[in-house]
């Protein structure tokens, strides 16, 4: 394993600490979209800890693997990881959502470490597909990991990108669906039912695995398995997750897509994720 990988670093990207960072950010900035950040914590944690080649470990390292957050509403989870890497400071987290910072509420490519601007859904996966095609053409060996929301799969551009990646045999692309079964306006089943995403990826000739998106060992195993298969087929992981994971009163409660933390709910949520 290359030295640049972080698997050996003890306690790096600890899920509880990442969740605490998200809560601190959300409370300091008085912001929304807490639930959709908490559902992808383990996904981004294992990617940064064990799978992403970060090159010289600077945000724009040439030859780095790409982590594209297509569901930009979950950006606080990625910010928490950038904080672990030292790319964001404590002060940055405290000033999230504040006047004069670059840390806007949704994923924004002008923040070092973020690859796309993706508050508008259905943009990140097409861009990730282009990054993967570019890497293939350049024979750079770079991989592209694209985290998408299940609700985001309502967007037509997502399916065009999936077809494109298959056509161009982009086996360096891994699409990871955060299947938390909610979107802004309700359960995905009730808005536009997605049926079985696993079956849909299989029908598109993807190598696809379904895992518990909060089980880091299962995520690691799935990623290792898929990345070993350089067979011309794009990869997908359907990660079953819980929106608001880690805070009992947020779990599967979609009001936490739009609800802001008060001092009381912040304290209660932080106590839960820190196991107090």
């Amino acid at each position: 394993m290359p030295e640049s990988r972080l698997r050996s670093r003890a306690n790096a990207f600890d899920a509880a600490r990442l969740r605490a960072s998200v809560l601190r950010m959300a409370f300091a900035g008085s912001t929304v979209h807490v639930g959709c950040a908490l559902s992808i914590i383990e996904i981004v944690a294992v990617l940064y800890r064990s799978h992403l080649n970060l090159g010289d470990r600077t945000p724009r390292a040439a030859g780095r693997d790409y982590l594209v957050l297509s569901k930009g509403h979950g950006v606080m989870a990625q910010y928490a990881c950038l904080h672990e890497l030292g790319w964001l400071t404590d002060a940055d987290l405290d000033r999230y959502f504040s006047n004069g910072t670059r840390m806007k509420g949704l994923s924004d490519a002008h923040v070092p470490g973020l690859e796309v601007t993706s508050g508008s859904l259905g943009h990140g996966l097409p861009v990730a597909t282009g990054l993967a095609l570019g890497a293939q053409r350049l024979r750079s060996g770079q991989r592209v990991f694209c985290v998408v929301g299940d609700g985001e799969m309502n967007e037509g551009a997502m399916w065009e990108a999936l077809l494109f990646a298959g056509q161009f045999r982009l086996d360096n692309l891994v699409v990871i669906v955060d299947e938390n079964r909610f979107q802004a306006m309700g359960p995905t089943q009730e808005v536009i039912s997605l049926g079985s995403l696993h079956a849909k990826f299989a029908a598109f000739d993807y190598d696809v695995l379904s895992v518990d998106g909060h089980d880091e060992k299962a995520l690691d195993a799935a990623l290792d398995d898929l990345m070993a298969r350089r067979n011309g087929r794009p990869k997908a992981i359907v990660a079953a997750t819980v929106k608001g994971r880690g805070v009992s009163f947020m779990e599967n409660n979609n009001v936490w897509h739009y609800t802001r933390l008060t001092k009381e709910t912040f304290d209660a949520a932080l106590a839960e994720v820190e196991g107090r």
Partner: peptide
């Protein structure tokens, strides 16, 4: 078209 202009301020350019 709701939220026209820059009223979705902190959410950034996409909104």
């Amino acid at each position: 078209g709701d939220g026209a202009g820059v009223v979705y301020a902190q959410l950034g350019t996409s909104h």
